[in-house]
Design a binder for these strands. Structure first.
Length: 303
RNA sequence: GGAGAGGUGGCUGAGCGGUUAAAAGCAGCAGACUGUAAAUCUGCCGGGCCUAGCGCCCUACGGAGGUUCGAACCCUCCCCUCUCCA
């Protein structure tokens, strides 16, 4: 049975649609959102409610703590068996989320390269911090892997860092591993579309609501348990809320900044999705119609 | 009424005689995405023309004049904002 993927920009109603589909067809929801993975980060990630999670089995939410290392490869590793198990029970895995890189890691797989190596990362970062560091790192990369260096701009520190990390640990350029091929796991991909003005409006309202319902308080509580340097504190909303807690930002500015980043994020998601193939786009303006259309697609695929 | 400060592209805001269609940021648009991905990064961004060039032509730094080879930058008057004293 092919899994169903619900995609679309943040705030387009993916979770709600996934829930209704699950209820309608005996499905179980599998998260592919990089932030809803974290325990305790609820308000800012718009995590499904307790009631929703009781109504339908939800998987891969709240599986790690803020200070634990986790990445796309880890995700693919654990998500695959989860989907298989759902399938084994004769139910439909419904993937819902917004981290399309994680989704790709699951559906297409990642090359079998070595993972992260913190001590090597530390070494690289020491060089990066020196004057002209990023430039020097990029030049280093050019010498060992010209192909990758040509593709990655010097300021793109994350990618330069990873490419060098792979080189140092294996002695092989990262470009020598095959890029993900076209042979991805078959799935029914449904993407939600909303006109920009409507989307932005609902995004703004949602950010407002997050602060009103205690995003800053939630963040303050999490900061008592985890260092601010922990990954999810860099996420949209949490970065700003953490700044409020630290007294660096007033709430109004935090809201404005969170809105700005949310809008930019939704745009990036759309850019990714546009390049994605075999996507069934559905207008998300009317929930009933969207649901009906999605259901139709689903029954088509199953017959 | 008196004393200051200021009016710059959609916004914030630099520039203070030429190399300025005007820094930078934001917003906007397009894009990338091989283990940090809600991350990270790239390009475009007044308008028109074409022989497509470090090309040409318009329009543009509140308004109108002036000085100058040349003005967003200097002078004059006007209009408008803000702060302070009354």
């Amino acid at each position: 049975m092919t899994p169903v993927v619900i995609a679309g920009p943040t705030g387009s109603g993916k979770s709600a649609l996934a829930l209704r589909l699950a209820l309608a067809c005996g499905g179980e929801i599998v998260n592919y959102d990089s932030m809803q993975i974290y325990r305790g980060f609820d308000i800012g990630t718009a995590k499904p409610s307790r009631a929703d999670r009781k109504a339908v089995p939800h998987h891969l939410f709240d599986i790690i703590d803020a200070d634990e290392e986790f990445n796309a490869a880890d995700y693919a590793r654990i998500a695959l068996p989860v989907c298989d198990a759902i399938d084994g029970r004769g139910r439909v895995p419904i993937l819902a989320g917004g981290t399309f890189f994680y989704l790709r890691a699951l559906l297409s797989g990642l090359p079998s390269m070595p993972g992260r190596n913190e001590s090597i990362r530390a070494r690289i970062r020491r060089i990066a911090a020196a004057p002209n560091g990023p430039m020097r790192l990029h030049r280093w990369l050019s010498r060992v892997d010209a192909v990758t260096a040509a593709r990655i701009p010097p300021p793109d520190r994350h990618r330069v860092e990873r490419a060098l990390e792979v080189w140092i640990t294996t002695g092989r350029p990262i470009s020598s591993w095959d890029p993900p091929g076209d042979d991805e796991l078959p799935s029914l991909k449904i993407a939600l579309r909303l006109d920009r003005a409507t989307l932005v409006e609902s995004l703004d309202a949602r950010v407002e609501a997050m602060y009103r319902t205690g995003l800053v308080e939630e963040t303050a509580a999490l900061l008592r348990r985890f260092p601010r340097s922990a990954r999810p504190f860099g996420a949209i909303g949490y970065r700003e809320a953490a700044a409020v807690v630290a007294g660096e930002l007033d709430v109004a500015s935090a809201i404005a900044e969170t809105r700005r980043r949310t809008r930019a994020y939704s745009k990036r998601q759309l850019t990714w999705l546009r390049a994605e193939r075999n996507v069934h786009w559905l207008d998300a303006k009317n929930r009933e119609e969207t649901f009906a259309a999605a259901l139709r697609l689903l029954t088509e695929v199953r017959s």
